[in-house]
Amino acid sequence: MSIFKDFLLKFRESFKGTKPVIHSVLGNVFSMRVIGNKTHGDLAEIALTEYINEFVEDYSAVHTGKEKFRAKKFEEDISVTNKLTGATFPISIKTYGVGPLQLSTNKDGSMFSHLTEIVSKSEITNSQKIKDILKNPCFFNFSKVNVLPLIYDEKNKTFKIILFDLEKAYNSVSKVTYFPPRKYGKDRETFPIYKFFTADEQYIFEVRYGGAGANALQRGMWTHTENASPFFNEILNGTYQINEPLIKLVSKILVSPREKHEKILDLLRQLNGNS
Rank of each mutant, 00 (worst) to 15 (best):
R12P: 00
V119F: 03
E262K: 07
N243C: 06
K129Q: 15
D187K: 15
F231L: 08
V21T: 06
F205A: 11
I242A: 05
S60D: 01
P90Y: 10
A212C: 09
K83P: 06
K195L: 11
F69P: 01
N53S: 04
I46R: 01
I133G: 07
K248W: 02
N233Y: 02
Y51T: 04
G273M: 02
Y240D: 05
K260M: 11
G238A: 09
D153G: 13
E75C: 11
Q218T: 03
S104C: 11
N227E: 08
P149C: 14
H23T: 08
D266E: 14
S2I: 02
K19M: 06
I52K: 05
K175W: 03
Y240L: 06
L268A: 13
S14D: 02
F7Q: 04
R70Q: 09
P20H: 10
E76I: 01
G213C: 05
P245C: 10
G17L: 00
I253H: 07
K19F: 13
K94M: 06
R33Q: 01
F89I: 11
E259Y: 04
L134E: 09
R219V: 08
F196V: 07
K66S: 12
R258I: 10
T223L: 03
E13Q: 08
F15T: 02
P180I: 10
G86N: 12
D58E: 13
N37E: 08
R70T: 07
R33W: 00
T39R: 04
K107T: 09
K260R: 10
V119T: 14
E54H: 06
E234V: 10
S104M: 10
D132K: 15
L217F: 09
K66I: 11
K195I: 05
S251D: 14
V255M: 07
S127Q: 14
C138I: 09
K73N: 10
K121Q: 13
E117Y: 08
S172Y: 03
V176I: 15
K160G: 05
S110F: 00
V98R: 13
S113N: 13
V207I: 01
F196D: 01
D165H: 11
S127W: 01
V62E: 11
E226W: 03
S143G: 14
S104R: 10
F74M: 14
E54W: 01
E154G: 12
N237W: 02
I162K: 11
Q270N: 01
K157G: 00
A169Q: 14
Y51K: 06
G210C: 06
G17T: 07
D187V: 08
L26V: 02
G210W: 02
D58K: 10
T95M: 00
E117I: 06
A47H: 04
K10S: 13
R258S: 08
G213K: 15
